[in-house]
Design a protein around this nucleic acid. Structure first.
Length: 429
RNA sequence: UCCUCAGUAGCUCAAUGGUAGAGCGCCCGGCUGUUAACCGGUAGGUUGCAGGUUCGAGUCCUGCCUGAGGAGCCA
């Protein structure tokens, strides 16, 4: 039986066996320190020359970085250890003496590390990020499941564009053309009419030539869709979901956030309701701040950053002009030139992490929108059916997982939030 | 697609137009509490590619390739 490093506190004074990799080694003539990791944690193995057999001592001196080992030894509490525990090593069984490991403990450049991404994820920092990503995913799913949402998986291969705006990855579906999904939303609307409150969690593909710290070609979205939920209630659901996620990560990922040196005081401010600003107010704010901006234009990244800087939490920008938003968004009945929609902009320049809206439920208006946007009513007959057979008010939103992870972790690029990022110029490994 | 910046040892980087160097890593030696340990030594180079200017180019010029982060687009 192997003991996990995470559990060593329960084995003080006991002789245990670890399965581990050697991530670093220091030696000083008659004492050797083995830095061990096993995926659950880190511990230092100590060998004193006078206390171990010559064979074990000799074995330890030849070990290379990232060699795989079974290590036997006794667990001891020690104030000098960062984790509070050390292991007095009594035996080492080498599974494999690793070849010269390319990633040293010194600095490396982005291109080098991305080429070695399959090894880079072994590093303490990258492993911490991936662990937080996992916790964020399960926090979202736990919260949604607890609120009566049903997980529904929309297709990845689709016959045509869902929104018709962005570039899709084209492929063949036998003799037909097919595209990788850029959003499951339209299918989720169908699912909401069947199951009430639903959400999807899956990959999304955008063949955009975007090349910034906020963009991936393949990224993961959570897309809830809710029947009988109108704009205001949707916003409340979004803010309580997000604050649940942030609080859960703060509670259960203390070690990981420390490794990342995240300033958690900024996250602790996310406690419930989030600030809101209408598009109109945002335009005023920009003009007041000296940025020229005309009502009716869409915000660019610098505008979003400027707006977000005025708040210390994520902020909803609501009621965008109907003209610049997606065809399915419901116009505000009291003011049809703006839509019942909201983007949630994260602080610290992380950009939009949620985009959502109430959807058009009126079949006539939806038909008009199809004409305006020159969408094929034939191709989308199934979607228009949803407005013919018992249409109801409904709302939904999409949360970009990687931007959310980047913000919570305080990273300067989304490429570190996903195990194997797909980016412009990056399909390997 | 556009703008800006970069490419020199395995890695991170130096080098007025004038003999290509350092730190780390590898290898060898030393050190009884190291925390990216430290100290000494060895090896390691088609300066991204192709042209051009020059007595002489890592350095200047032209083209190309690769990468970076920003714009647009978006989550």
């Amino acid at each position: 039986m192997l003991t996990h490093i995470k559990q060593v506190a329960n084995h003080v004074g006991e002789s245990v066996r670890l399965g581990a990799w050697l991530y670093n080694k220091r030696s000083s003539g008659k004492i050797q320190f083995l830095q061990l990791r096993d995926g659950t944690g880190y511990i230092q193995g100590v060998l004193l020359k006078k206390n171990v057999s010559p064979e074990v001592w000799e074995q330890a001196t030849t070990l290379t970085q990232e060699s795989s080992l079974y290590v036997d030894g006794t667990i001891r509490a020690d104030d000098r250890a960062p984790s509070g525990y050390e292991m007095d090593v009594t035996g080492i069984e080498v599974i494999q003496e690793a070849e010269e490991y390319p990633i040293s403990l010194k600095e490396h450049g982005v291109e080098f590390l991305m080429d070695k991404r399959h090894l880079w994820i072994r590093s303490r920092r990258q492993a911490a990020i991936l662990r937080i990503r996992s916790v964020i995913i399960s926090a979202i799913q736990d919260w949604l499941n607890g609120q009566g949402f049903t997980l529904v998986d929309p297709p990845v291969l689709t016959p045509s564009s869902c929104e018709g705006t962005t570039n899709l990855f084209h492929t063949k579906y036998f003799d037909e053309d097919a595209y990788l999904t850029q959003s499951g939303q339209l299918y989720m609307e169908a699912a909401a009419m069947a199951l009430g409150r639903v959400y999807s969690f899956g990959p999304t593909f955008r063949a955009e030539k975007s090349k910034t710290r906020r963009h991936l070609i393949e990224f993961w979205m959570i897309e809830p869709e809710m029947a009988f939920v109108e704009h205001e209630e949707s916003l409340q659901i979004q803010e309580s979901m997000l604050s649940h996620v942030v609080n859960h990560v703060l509670k259960s990922c203390k070690t990981e956030l420390e490794i990342l040196e995240r300033d958690t005081s900024k996250l602790e401010k996310v406690t419930g309701s989030l600030p809101r600003i209408t598009y109109d107010e945002a335009v005023e704010l920009l003009n007041r701040e000296g940025m020229e901006f005309t009502w009716g234009d869409d915000f660019g990244a610098p505008h979003e950053t400027k707006i977000a800087e005025s708040f210390d939490q994520p902020v909803f920008i609501t009621h965008y002009p109907t003209q610049i938003k997606a065809f399915y968004m419901k116009p505000d009945p009291t003011r049809p030139e703006v839509a019942l929609c909201a983007d949630l902009i994260a602080p610290e320049g992380y950009g939009e992490i949620i985009g959502g809206s109430q959807r058009i439920d009126d079949p006539k208006l939806m038909a008009e929108r199809f004409n305006e946007h020159e969408l094929s009513q034939e191709d989308y007959a199934w979607y228009l059916d949803l407005r013919k057979y018992g249409t109801v008010p409904h709302s939904g939103f999409g949360l970009g997982l990687e931007r959310t992870v980047a913000w919570i972790c305080g990273l300067d690029h989304v490429r570190e939030t996903i195990p194997f990022p797909r980016m412009l110029n990056r399909l390997y490994p």
